[in-house]
């Protein structure tokens, strides 16, 4: 089920602006990988390149190869929607569907992909909301609009929505930046649970979180504004946080930079 993701010399562009340069990394199945680095260094851009969300923006393009279980997802005969169904994504800013209720938001992915059976949807809804630590807060108002929730609740709603379709890889772009410590712990628990079956890549600005949850950590950085982001170091989390081989990494995680 879980997939291995490999990036070979991936560079992503916004028009003529090169946002990331020559990223190569391998993400093993059933692991949690954390991406850290200063703001604007291309973490989101790289993450969005993994499920072909980058190309949605006009003028955005990518060079290099990105494979999932040895299949290049950028091959011309690849079905984009299949890739995205396999690789789910939680965005940096919560984006619940404004015309849908909480319930409809959670099961949107299933419904829009053809699942009709009510009992199945109900079950998926409850399971996903419980996993995202939102069930207790919303179980009495599932028919209320999803956009009427607080910012942190909306983010957890989006997490529930993503895991409801059971993707094999989950990309999370700062999923906890708007969450309280209790919900953050719940999401981290969820990640540990998902790890049994799925591959997870998470972007975070929270060093403790990266150290707590991840098996491997990638450190991105830019030399100066306008330069493309680069993968400085990619290693076991243990090693990155105790004995990084690059001076820049050490400076960043000890707070002397960025």
């Amino acid at each position: 089920m879980a997939k291995r993701i490999e990036a070979y010399n991936v560079s992503s562009y916004y028009g003529s602006f090169k946002a990331i340069d020559n990223i190569s990394m391998t993400v093993e199945p059933k692991t949690i990988t954390a991406l850290i680095g200063p703001s604007g260094c291309g973490k989101s851009t790289f993450l969005r390149s993994i499920n072909r969300m980058h190309e949605v923006l006009p003028g955005a393009r990518i060079e290099g190869r990105l494979t999932i279980d040895d299949q290049n997802i950028y091959d011309s005969d690849v079905d984009v929607t299949a890739v995205r169904r396999m690789i789910g994504m939680v965005f940096q800013r919560p984006n619940p569907f404004p015309t849908m209720s909480i319930y409809e938001n959670v099961v949107a992915g299933l419904r829009l992909n053809g699942v009709r059976k009510k009992s199945l949807l109900d079950e998926a809804c409850e399971k996903s909301l419980v996993a995202a630590n939102l069930w207790n807060e919303v179980k009495d108002r599932l028919d209320r609009p999803g956009a009427g929730l607080s910012g942190g609740q909306q983010q957890r709603l989006c997490i529930a929505r993503t895991i409801a379709v059971e993707p094999q890889v989950v990309l999370m772009d700062e999923p906890c930046s708007a969450l309280d410590p209790i919900s953050t712990l719940a999401i981290e628990d969820l990640m540990f649970k998902l790890k049994d079956r799925f591959t997870i890549i998470i972007v975070t600005h929270n060093m403790q979180q990266a150290a707590r949850v991840s098996d491997r950590t990638g450190f991105f950085s830019i030399d100066k504004t306008g330069d493309p982001g680069r993968l400085i170091e990619y290693d076991d989390t243990q090693k990155i946080f105790s004995n990084p081989s690059e001076k820049k990494t050490e400076d960043y995680i000890t707070g002397r930079f960025g």
């Binding site: 949605v56 923006l57 995205r84 396999m86 965005f91 569907f97 949107a108 829009l112 929505r161 993503t162």
Partner: peptide
């Protein structure tokens, strides 16, 4: 908003849908 569309794409929903 664009992120709304992206939210649906990320669930594997085809563009027309």
């Amino acid at each position: 908003p664009g992120p709304l569309r992206e939210g649906a794409y990320a669930l594997g929903v085809p563009k027309w849908k």
